[in-house]
């Protein structure tokens, strides 16, 4: 104990009424920090957000499984270059859709949404804070998974300098579509149903055009193009493999985002 002045007395508890909300930015920032902390404390969430995408990257890039997954039409490219954008898309699916839907579904069930709606955070602040938390976690995922991919030989700039901003833009579009779908799911179904559907959808969507390019489906490939997973997969691969913005898939993602959001406004139940 070097300093006497550091021995501050116990803080006085001010009980007299002093209402007033904190500034909106502070409210949302507090909520985002809180949500990021909750997400990173949750073992299952870390598994789905980071461990499984990292495993997918390793398996697809370094084992014979990858050869089966990468369709012949893309066979001429280094496998890690084909696989990495899909894995980043999978990370978005994990956080924006599966993680959010489950967390929100249980928060709704346990009355968390009701309680926070009575604080100055309000409903809009609650959703905004969660969206910011999703973006923060996604940024973390992109950094970690990209570092791993680079170590495995990924060349993100092979198709030119536009690849990286285009990749980030398409990941944001994917986030919009999947976060809206998460809200739709979490705001209408029971928590257990949300859990089941969100996990099942994660597996199916990963296989349907996201991690596994839809060309692998052969004759069914054109049908898969309307799925948000295929649209995101096509868009991220066009960004990094061709250095172009795939307008069709981007339009599909926007349509999913807008359609789901419109339904959320009509159907979302807060309790």
């Amino acid at each position: 104990m070097g300093s006497v002045s550091s021995q501050a007395g116990p803080a006085v508890l001010e009980l007299a009424p002093a209402g007033g909300a904190a500034p909106a930015a502070q409210r949302v920032a507090a909520q985002s920090r809180f949500e990021v902390g909750v997400l990173l404390r949750n073992g299952e969430q870390v598994l789905v957000s980071l461990v499984l995408p990292a495993l997918a990257l390793l398996v697809l890039a370094r084992t014979p499984v990858g050869a089966a997954v990468v369709p012949a039409s893309l066979g001429g490219l280094p496998r890690i270059d084909v696989v990495t954008p899909g894995v980043l898309g999978l990370a978005v699916l994990s956080t924006a859709f599966t993680g959010q839907a489950i967390a929100l579904g249980f928060d709704r069930r346990y009355g968390v949404l009701r309680l926070l709606a009575t604080t100055p955070l309000g409903r809009s602040g609650l959703l905004l804070g969660r969206l910011v938390a999703v973006l923060v976690v996604e940024a973390l995922q992109v950094v970690v998974l990209s570092a791993l991919a680079l170590a495995l030989g990924w060349r993100p700039l092979a198709a030119g300098g536009a690849a990286v901003p285009l990749l980030l833009l398409t990941l944001l579009l994917g986030t919009a579509a999947f976060a809206a779908l998460a809200l739709l799911l979490a705001g209408t179904l029971r928590a257990e149903a949300v859990l089941a559907v969100a996990n099942l959808a994660w597996v199916l969507l990963a296989g349907a055009g996201l991690l596994v390019p839809r060309e692998a489906a052969g004759a069914a490939a054109p049908l898969l193009a309307v799925l948000p997973s295929s649209a995101l997969g096509d868009a991220v691969r066009a960004a990094t493999l061709d250095g172009t913005l795939a307008l069709g898939p981007c339009a599909v993602l926007l349509a999913w985002a807008a359609g789901a959001a419109a339904l959320v406004v009509r159907t979302f139940k807060w309790s």
Binding site: G37, V38, A103, Y110, V112, R114, L115, L116
Partner: peptide, 9 residues
């Protein structure tokens, strides 16, 4: 019914 988030400290 509480409404406290279960996963947080």
């Amino acid at each position: 019914d509480g409404g406290l988030p279960g996963g947080a400290p």
